[in-house]
């Protein structure tokens, strides 16, 4: 029992690492660009599929991650530039538009990669299981994923909190006019954040596809869980995405383990309660 509980904690944490990759991009694009991009789940799935193809052709997991991320950066830029930009600050229009984009991406992916569950091949070094302190045996890949998530999280946090670019982005989250007034090219800054978010989503698809597998519908499943992360943590907050991912990852793991048929309740129930107390999430502010 206790060792299972520990295993579930590690499971939850590794899922949290993946959710963070997706949710951080979503939350940053909202915070800075005020854009709600519902195609983020489709970016994840498509990035995963592209990475899968790259991995099958080259045999390199690193190239798969790069390929998955880069392809979404290009696609995301085009969608931003030619579609989302036309919606201005209208969130309703953004949601409808990006849902439409997600439908198209999902449908085309189905036509190209088919309806079966596909798994991105894990590099040989990360296959199999490893023994953790205390005698627990755990899949190496998922353990490395936790480390990877922490690494990316730390990098993002340093970028966001400790660098000049991060300072400008944070100022932009607070007050966009103010940043424009300082003479910084805000369009380029937006494009940069947007590209980062796209890359994170595409990369998440490859990383997630290696243990959750890729299949039609995975785009929406992961998106909704990422939305819960963002709602719990507070829309627009990087720290919120970290904490939210951890909470949601753990809830999901324990929910699936203890109440398999109602795991969705376990996941969303606390969100509903939180909503009653703090409608804007833990780190959320009035916008």
């Amino acid at each position: 029992m206790t060792s299972s509980a520990v295993l579930q904690a590690i499971n939850g944490t590794s899922l949290a690492a993946l959710l963070f990759l997706l949710a951080s991009g979503f939350t940053l694009t909202f915070g800075l660009l005020r854009v709600v991009n519902m195609a983020h789940g489709a970016y994840y799935l498509l990035g995963g599929y592209v990475g899968l193809t790259v991995a099958e052709r080259t045999g390199s997991f690193a190239l798969a991650i790069l390929g998955g991320g880069a392809s979404i950066v290009v696609l995301g830029y085009l969608i931003d530039r030619f579609l989302i930009r036309h919606t201005g600050d209208n969130h309703l229009a953004q949601v409808l538009l990006t849902v439409g984009v997600a439908f198209v991406i999902g449908d085309v992916s189905l036509a190209v990669w088919g309806g079966d569950s596909l798994k991105v091949p894990v590099p040989v070094a990360l296959r199999g299981a490893m023994e953790l302190p205390g005698g627990l045996v755990y899949p190496t890949y998922r353990f490395v994923l936790i480390l990877f998530g922490i690494l990316v999280g730390a990098a993002l946090w340093i970028l966001y909190r400790k660098t000049q670019i991060g300072a400008v982005v944070r100022a932009g989250v607070d007050d966009r006019e103010q940043v424009s007034a300082t003479g910084i090219n805000i369009d380029r800054l937006f494009a940069l954040v947007s590209a980062l978010a796209s890359f994170l989503a595409g990369m998440a698809g490859v990383v997630g596809g290696a243990f959750l597998t890729l299949y039609p519908g995975a785009d929406w499943e992961i998106l909704v869980v990422a939305l819960v992360v963002v709602i719990v943590g507070g829309l627009g907050s990087l720290e919120g995405a970290m904490l939210g991912a951890l909470i949601v990852g753990l809830l999901d793991a324990y929910g699936r383990w203890l109440l398999p048929e109602f795991s969705y309740f376990v996941l969303f129930g606390p969100m509903a309660v939180l909503l009653l107390v703090r409608p804007r999430g833990i780190f959320g502010r009035d916008v």
Partner: peptide, 9 residues
């Protein structure tokens, strides 16, 4: 489904 998506857009 793609056509529906395009209708949304």
């Amino acid at each position: 489904a793609s056509v529906m998506g395009l209708v949304f857009i």
